[in-house]
Amino acid sequence: MVKLYCMSVFYKGPSSATCLKAAYDLQSFNFFQRGSIQEFMAFVSKTITERTTTASRQSVKQGEYMCHIYVRGDNLTAVLISDEDYPPRVSHTLITKVLDEFSQIIPASSWSTISESDVHFPQINTYLAKYQNPQEADAMTKIQTDLDETKIILHNTIEAVLERGEKLDDLVAKSEGLSIQSKAFYKTARKTNSCCNFS
């Protein structure tokens, strides 16, 4: 499937990252699981932001999902979670575009202190919706070819992004952002994906 699920803007502080704005499109998931999936996407986005060095781009593939991230030199970060078929070049173009626009609207001095609810940046939702069809979106941004694709670091699993000795299961168990229900959801999903299932 060619789809964007989640886009979020973070400020990467010295010890942890804070979410400044996020937009989701989870229509394709089951109604009762959307809440947990949203929590998970936020959790993954935050985890990856904290483990990406300043001024770098990464793309992480996990199962059928791709997670693209760009931490700018000034520590403003955008994370985009998409399906594996979504063209990565368009994803990174979108990230750059959203970050540019964000930093124009929200002054850099407030990034480290402002909370998510105070950030007024509805454009992020518009972008997420518009870029669902990469064809239309790409036509508009075709001129922007300054993206150097060779500089994007590619990882094949989330585990590859984690620091030495860290395990995803432990991070999930420790996380405060995930509800009990979402943790149960994670365990069930792990179990069903651990062997071949024909459902």
Partner: peptide, 10 residues
């Protein structure tokens, strides 16, 4: 009705 699923609540 649109959808049925088993919700992982243990």
């Amino acid at each position: 009705l649109k959808d049925f699923c088993i919700v992982p609540i243990n």
